[in-house]
């Protein structure tokens, strides 16, 4: 029995070694940040959200872009808890800074860089990712090539800054070196009891691709400053979810 425990420990260590060799850290500076993602965490390698890597978000519509930014803001809230600043790079930015406060981020700690070309956005992002004191770098882009994402990955491997590449209404999907690809879609909110009106923001979070992990779809809600997993989805959504899953594995 004792031997078995030792073997498990050894396998866990080997796994960790392999992951670090693949340029993939299980947390920031060895310490794990709890993003409160609940069941989503099980999809990640090592069971925790991979900070210090680059994540890709894909939004086909304006409403999805807002939902993605909301989800990202929830993640940033945890990344920025320790202090530090965040760089938000975009072209024709629509983000309204005061709304970040609803996601627990102090808007004056975010530095916005408004560029005119995607090329500049990538340059700024690469510079930002090299700066170890930043908590995170967010870039809203239209298109990014594999080679460009490789540069970002190299910058991140050294500095361990978390990067979010948000592709809004981009054309052809190309594969990138990002550790994950997310699609966030807004879902109808549910208010407490029978109260009328709009409830807390609720999203269908699809982890379409994750290196060394298991992709999946979840429903999350942002309530009182934390993510909450919605365990009892309504009928319509669960159907669409299952059909999507089939499509994904087909």
């Amino acid at each position: 029995m004792k031997e078995l425990g030792g073997k498990k420990e050894m396998i866990r260590q080997l796994r960790e070694q392999i992951m670090t060799m693949e340029g993939f850290s299980s947390g920031m500076d060895g310490q794990r940040l709890d993003f409160g993602l609940g069941p989503v965490d099980r999809a990640f390698p090592g069971g925790t959200f991979p900070a210090g890597a680059i994540h890709e978000f894909v939004s086909p519509t304006e409403a999805c872009a807002a939902a993605s930014n909301g989800f990202m803001a929830g993640l940033l809230h945890v990344l920025m808890k320790k202090g530090g600043s965040c760089l938000w790079i975009g072209k024709g930015r629509k983000l309204f800074p005061p709304a970040l406060k609803f996601f627990g981020i102090e808007p004056h700690r975010v530095i916005f860089i408004d560029v005119r070309r995607d090329k500049d956005a990538l340059w700024v992002m690469e510079q930002g990712l090299k700066c170890k004191t930043l908590a995170a770098v967010v870039a809203e882009l239209k298109d990014i090539s594999f080679a460009e994402s490789r540069r970002l990955q190299l910058a991140v491997e050294d500095s361990r800054v978390t990067g979010f590449v948000h592709r809004c209404r981009s054309g052809a999907m190309s594969s990138l070196t990002c550790v994950s690809r997310w699609r966030i879609k807004p879902l109808p909110s549910r208010s407490e009891g029978k109260l009328p009106g709009v409830g807390f923001p609720r999203w269908e979070v699809e982890l379409e691709k994750i290196r060394n992990g298991r992709p999946g779809i979840w429903q999350l809600e942002w309530r009182a400053g934390v993510f909450r997993h919605v365990s009892v989805p309504n009928q319509a959504v669960s159907e669409s979810q299952s059909s999507k899953k089939e499509k994904h594995y087909a």
Partner: peptide
Amino acid sequence: SIAELLDNIAGKVGEKAIHRY
């Protein structure tokens, strides 16, 4: 180091690109 990063950015894409609210 953040100020230096912003200086670099201002040098490349212009000072008007940087905003804080």
